[in-house]
């Protein structure tokens, strides 16, 4: 929808784009992966009518509100809107982080790791949590809190590795 083009990183020249987690993840363990650039679309309306493309992942928060993780947010927005579902490009709004380990998960949230995906409290902020195979998880959260999230995750990891000192 052209009135909302100004929300879409995909409409910017690619070399103009940066991730909110970039600086925090320098030197971080490989188990942490930055998913911030991935396409994310917020949906409002009858989610049953959203047309999904190959590889799209729909996370339902309520019957009328959901998030679509997609490789092509622009196409997804056009498709949803054509089906009467309002769609907003949240690619730039949400930072994304993939991490591993159920203990790490439990130290960050009291959500049930067996009942994902869902939205809930995570490191005292709000996030959408997704579980992949095994003990691999993804979290999506407001990008302005991205650096904070990385700091916390790295600190918890240091603690799990037996470190004693906080942010020494």
């Amino acid at each position: 929808m052209s009135a909302l083009y100004f929300m879409s990183p995909a409409r910017c020249t690619p070399e103009t784009l940066a991730s909110p987690l970039e600086r925090g993840l320098v030197g971080a363990p490989e188990s942490l992966r930055d998913l911030s650039p991935d396409g994310k679309v917020e949906l409002r309306g009858d989610l049953a009518r959203v047309g999904l493309a190959e590889g799209d992942e729909l996370i339902r928060l309520t019957p009328r509100r959901g998030f679509l993780l997609t490789g092509d947010p622009l196409a997804a927005i056009d498709r949803s809107r054509a089906n009467g579902v309002l769609a907003y490009d949240m690619t730039g709004a949400l930072g994304g982080l993939a991490f591993e380990g159920e203990t790490l998960f439990r130290r960050l949230t009291d959500l049930d790791p067996g009942a994902l995906p869902t939205a809930g409290g995570f490191a005292r902020i709000s996030a959408i949590l997704v579980r992949d195979e095994g003990e691999r998880f993804r979290a999506y959260f407001p990008q302005e809190l991205g650096h904070y999230v990385v700091e916390v995750v790295l600190d918890v990891l240091a603690g799990l590795a037996g470190g004693r000192s906080h942010r020494a």
Partner: peptide, 26 residues
């Protein structure tokens, strides 16, 4: 400069001015 912006002409600081709103990634 290759970035789509919503430009708002408003003047909180009292001079000619443009508020540019655009994808935070850029």
């Amino acid at each position: 400069a290759g970035v789509p912006c919503l430009a708002l002409r408003i003047g909180f600081v009292g001079e000619l001015g443009y508020e540019l709103h655009f994808p935070s990634s850029a």
